[in-house]
């Protein structure tokens, strides 16, 4: 016989889901706690949590009925998505001010979860433009920028395909970096543009783990030291994967240094 899910159990599941979504989307730990406290206050519970990079442990207490419940949830690998963070932050204020019910919160969470990404071709083109922007900032000419554009485009495409095939996340970064720097290595080989090595240096910048590294420092400043250290290690692993891809391509083309 299936037991009916109690009210507190449903609320705990929902709060865990919200915290996990925020962690996956790239929010810092303080932000996750803030949203968690707002949502739990709106639903009428007190929440305490241990939030880590790959799992969340949470106890919620109903002080009126003297009930409490503890749950644990694993978190899958992260993918930055600011639309979810922005949406959940707005929803948390609305829930607090308008006293939302569990159903309302659940409906909003489901709606946010199904919000679309930008179209893939738009992401590819805009990130490639950003790559050629970096090339310009470091002093490249139009030909260098064009090569950086093509290299970034190829690299991001390969990385997206690798993510789709569910490779390990660091391998995805390595493959992206490897293919981007192979394309850019041609510009060094055939001496295209004013500073061809600049295309090579900027072609992998789209992979730089900006969000984990910034979050690592904000977490450390806020006193969430463990999360800060974990995020820094994660960011360093990504940088290592990028450099490994770049290094392999350079070995292949027998280029010494950038």
């Amino acid at each position: 016989m299936q037991k009916e899910i109690s009210k507190i159990e449903r609320a705990a599941g929902l709060l865990l889901k919200i915290s996990a979504m925020l962690m996956i989307a790239g929010a810092n730990t303080t932000r996750i706690f803030l949203s968690l406290y707002r949502f739990s206050a709106a639903l009428g519970y007190k929440a305490h949590a241990l939030i880590t990079h790959r799992a969340i442990i949470m106890t919620i207490t109903d002080e009126l009925n003297n009930e409490s419940l503890t749950k644990v949830k694993r978190i899958p690998p992260h993918g930055v998505n600011f639309r979810i963070i922005s949406g959940l932050s707005r929803a948390s204020w609305a829930a607090l001010n308008e006293k939302w019910s569990v159903d309302q919160v659940e409906a909003e969470v489901t709606r946010l979860r199904n919000l679309p990404h930008y179209p893939r071709i738009l992401i590819l083109i805009s990130v490639s433009l950003a790559g050629s922007g970096f090339c310009n900032i470091f002093g490249g000419d139009w030909l260098n920028m064009l090569m950086a554009f093509i290299a970034t485009f190829m690299g991001l495409f390969v990385r997206q395909e690798a993510v789709k095939m569910k490779f390990n996340q660091y391998i995805c970064v390595f493959l992206g970096s490897f293919s981007a720097s192979i394309v850019a290595s041609f510009s060094v080989m055939y001496d295209i543009g004013l500073k061809p090595e600049l295309s090579l240096a900027t072609s992998v910048l789209f992979l730089v783990p900006g969000v984990p590294l910034i979050n690592s420092f904000t977490d450390t400043i806020d006193g969430n030291l463990i999360n800060g250290i974990v995020r820094f290690a994660h960011g360093t692993m990504i940088v290592l994967a990028i450099a490994l891809g770049l290094f392999s391509a350079m070995m292949l083309f027998q280029l010494r240094t950038v």
Partner: peptide, 22 residues
Amino acid sequence: RFIWSGIAAAGFGILFNVPSRS
């Protein structure tokens, strides 16, 4: 540099799925 810094920031905004109003 002003223009290309802006384009780079907006490009990463699209990669991070920043809502179009921001």
